[in-house]
Design a protein around this nucleic acid. Structure first.
Lengths: 158, 158
DNA sequence: GCAATAATGATAATGAGTCTCATTTATAAT
DNA sequence: ATTATAAATGAGACTCATTATCATTATTGC
């Protein structure tokens, strides 16, 4: 066989997998097919996914392995965990793989959507956050900003 | 006896309790001594508290009742729940009782501290968030912003 | 005071996430 | 290639924060 991959490896996914491989290797981890599939599932979605979402997309992945791998990938900086409180955590690709953005969190159904802010706003925000962090002797790593409210779907259900 | 309260009821706490009473009454709930104690515990701390924190401060409160009352108070808009992912949720008084602020979340020990941003930054942020929400047909209720990093205490442990 | 109703608290139940461990798979060395 | 070494897998047991249950107790309206 030549290359009967289900999804043709476009340039983007090549870059992505190269990046993931490097991050994993740096920490003496292997880029197994299970992890590959997990990354593909996350990359294939425009929204952050829960564990049931992931298993629904890739039913042959074992839940326990997915949880373990999400943790490994999170520590390597490949995956970001979003804990909005209601039930399951959500997961998405981390910042170098997905550009910096924030979330619209629906308080009704728990779904999460991505949004991006203007660079100038983001920059101003960062400056001020660094200021207040310094005042508190706090060493900042990253910031999270989310907007809670009602998503379009849940507004219709009224 | 006249007024042998442990903490003398200053003006602030009178206001606070009047506010809580109104919010509870509006929803046909009673402002019992247990709920009073819970509000006092939250009001007496400069940081958001976990359930173990609360029970440590007021050991005569039953955990199950505290959880139940936190939920009731949350729905009445008196308490705000903060879920940072690591173990216990944190709780603090909600916005009308505590001025608008954000959080420094320590990724090592999980402690949460309050920070306030300049009004102008906050306003600009709100404007932009409303804009992107409108674009996504999303009805915003509130925003959360937190800075993750290492708190002063945990930096010393290196 | 006397219903009617809500709150309490001890305990059981839930469920998302983690741990275990025997088996499988991938890397490294010879 | 073959083996030796180490990591990954997957099924299920387990944890533990949070919720639900329910009999008892407290509070409010009449």
């Amino acid at each position: 066989m030549e290359k009967p991959t289900a999804s043709p490896p476009d340039e983007q996914s090549l870059d992505r997998h190269a990046f993931v491989l490097e991050r994993l290797s740096n920490d003496n981890h292997r880029y197994t097919t299970g992890r590959h599939r997990l990354v593909d599932a996350l990359a294939g979605s425009s929204k952050p996914l829960t564990l049931p979402d992931i298993v629904a997309i890739a039913p042959d992945l074992a839940a326990s392995s997915v949880y373990r791998n999400l943790e490994v990938l999170e520590q390597c900086g490949v995956v970001k965990r979003i804990t909005s409180g209601s039930g399951h955590a959500h997961f998405e690709l981390a910042e170098p793989l997905l550009s910096h953005h924030h979330h619209l969190v629906c308080v009704d159904c728990g779904e999460i959507e991505d949004v991006r802010l203007d660079d100038e706003v983001e920059e101003l925000l960062d400056q001020h956050l660094n200021m207040v962090a310094t005042d508190a002797s706090f060493k900042p790593l990253r910031h999270n900003l989310d907007l809670q409210g009602h998503c379009e779907k849940c507004q219709d259900l009224l």
